[in-house]
Design a protein around this nucleic acid. Structure first.
Lengths: 334, 334
DNA sequence: CTGAAAGCGCTTACAG
DNA sequence: CTGAAAGCGCTTACAG
């Protein structure tokens, strides 16, 4: 990377040992006298020795790189993607891995496939929102370690880590009931997405538990975009609802903005709950939302990937998500 | 990456040529008979040959990896960072480079330094918002190609690409004057940030051009966060302003939300303009804002980095930014 | 136009 | 505990 970088050989020469010993000392491998190890490390530090990752990769087969696959537009438009990538990046760094960002950017599938193969990463952490599912499965079948973040479609048989959606959605819906809402609508994500489906199911279950009838017309299907939230407003007003459970914050914010724009009081006339808990939820009116444990998800995903690299077969994990009450749902009791 | 990947040697054997020839054919280097080149490429395709990046790196000294350095919290909280990273990632991919994401995450500087050195990337694209400035300069001095995105502090003598701030800010301020605003406040970013300073200077210049006096109390210093926008509301109301030019969308949105929350009409009583043009600006009330040319910035940054790799010394670039009028500023003329 | 050979900077059995 | 040596998969002068 610089003019003439210091190599392991340089380090070994200065220390008067073989590069084999220097390598073992640096990497904490057994079979080096403690005082030698100490000296090598000190010298390495002082002459600024930095191992060449590619050489390590070539020699050991491990690149210490994790590929992260997300839909490109997601990063640009959905704070969820940014938060998730941030969390994965931190967790990876903490575990000694670099993060290779793969944005799909609507590239033809073959290119995505080639890109992922070429990347030379030890494994992939893939967003359940990524479009390359079938290519990912092919890579996994070819031996590439893969962990999903978010729940992938049922036909994808790969480990994943996601936040609780079903019970969190029950909780969110019940919260609106508790606030006195009687006619609650559900603004869902695409229902072929398992996480979106779970949130919808939770909405239904909450009604069942409360002994309330469910009117199918109260289910509005969106696509996780703010625009979908805005677009749903008209329908919601026509339905005469007094509460809305949205499948993510972006749609929830769209609904709130659209309602306020029309002079409808939130939460006075219509209460709104979102899902994600990204920073965008934090400014006025603060969204009531279900906060995903981003950092925990990132850490578990990285840990699971490392487990796979170590030959284990980790199971999927569903992490708890917390309802955080903000301004958009709390109203005076009737 | 998979069980026993096909190597250049495999490819060469199948084609009945040496690996040297196979290498040249694959990489489009001169000195290969057209029909041979064609055949090698076809076979490579059919047997699914994918060159090993690390081996290429080791042999050629080029890793085809670009390191992207951003403050970690920025990615999670500011859509600007997400949009910029997305744009850089796309541009890099288009140019055949992978993207290594380096999030500072408040790591101690030595670690950042080591991380960047270890990364093995061919060069770095660094956000002007990154905290590692002095380490970056040290790396650059050591021969690492660096291009900044956003204008770095004046003591950083490295090429950058940024969007027009000064004239865009003049334009934004004049737009408020045209809407009938008479007392316009400026909600700035940290004034030691050149881009923030330029936006502030543009605000001042617009007043000078209009022959209006400037009242220093109309300048409120923020920190680019939505919270700063919300926090500024009280002060803005006390000042009795009828217009606000914010240094980014996050603060502008904070201001708008805070004002609406207090029942102040936007833009009726107070008009607001932001800066960035991220997707967050697009839902109601749609922010009037200055749209940064993210994709162009990403493309230029990547192109400049490649130029440096080719031994050139590209100059910095300032790209045009466009005022996009939304809902938060247009009001009936007096 | 083509190939044999050296070399990039590491790691890792294999001997000792 | 330590070292000499082979090898990871490419690229690139150097000959021909």
């Amino acid at each position: 990377m610089t003019d003439r970088p210091t190599t392991l050989a340089d380090l070994a020469r200065v220390c008067g040992v073989s590069s084999a010993t220097a390598s073992r000392a640096i990497n904490g491998k057994p079979g080096v006298r403690p005082e030698v190890r100490e000296r090598v490390r000190r010298v390495a530090e002082s002459i600024g020795f930095v191992p060449n990752r590619s050489a390590q990769h070539l020699a050991s087969g491990r690149s210490s790189l994790i590929g992260v696959v997300f839909p490109s537009d997601g990063l640009r438009s959905d704070p969820y993607a940014a938060a998730m990538i941030d969390a994965i990046g931190r967790a990876a760094a903490k575990a000694g891995f670099g993060t290779l960002l793969h944005l799909e950017a609507g590239a033809p599938p073959e290119q995505v496939f080639a890109m992922l193969q070429r990347s030379g990463s030890d494994g992939l952490i893939v967003s359940a929102l990524a479009a390359s599912a079938m290519w990912i499965s092919e890579l996994a079948a070819a031996g590439v370690p893969v962990v999903y973040v978010g729940r992938p479609s049922p036909d994808v048989d790969l480990p994943f880590v996601t936040a609780e959606s079903f019970s969190a959605s029950i909780r969110a819906t019940e919260h609106l009931f508790e606030q006195g809402c009687r006619t609650v609508a559900c603004l869902t994500g695409p229902l072929d997405r398992p996480d979106a489906r779970d949130r919808y199911d939770g909405f239904v279950e909450a009604h069942r538990l409360a002994g309330l009838p469910i009117d199918d017309s109260l289910v509005v299907v969106g696509d996780f975009t703010a625009a979908a939230g805005v677009a749903a407003v008209e329908e919601l007003l026509r339905l005469g609802v007094d509460g809305v459970v949205a499948a993510n914050d972006l749609m929830a914010r769209g609904v709130v903005s659209g309602l306020v724009q029309r002079g409808v009081a939130v939460p006075g006339e219509i209460a709104v709950v979102g899902y994600d808990g990204t920073v965008g939820a934090e400014f006025p009116p603060v969204l009531t939302t279900v906060r995903q444990p981003f950092d925990a998800i990132g850490e578990r995903a990285v840990a699971m990937l490392i487990a796979i690299l170590d030959g284990e077969a980790p199971g999927s994990e569903v992490l708890a998500a917390e309802l955080v009450v903000g301004d958009t749902s709390v109203r005076a009791r009737r």
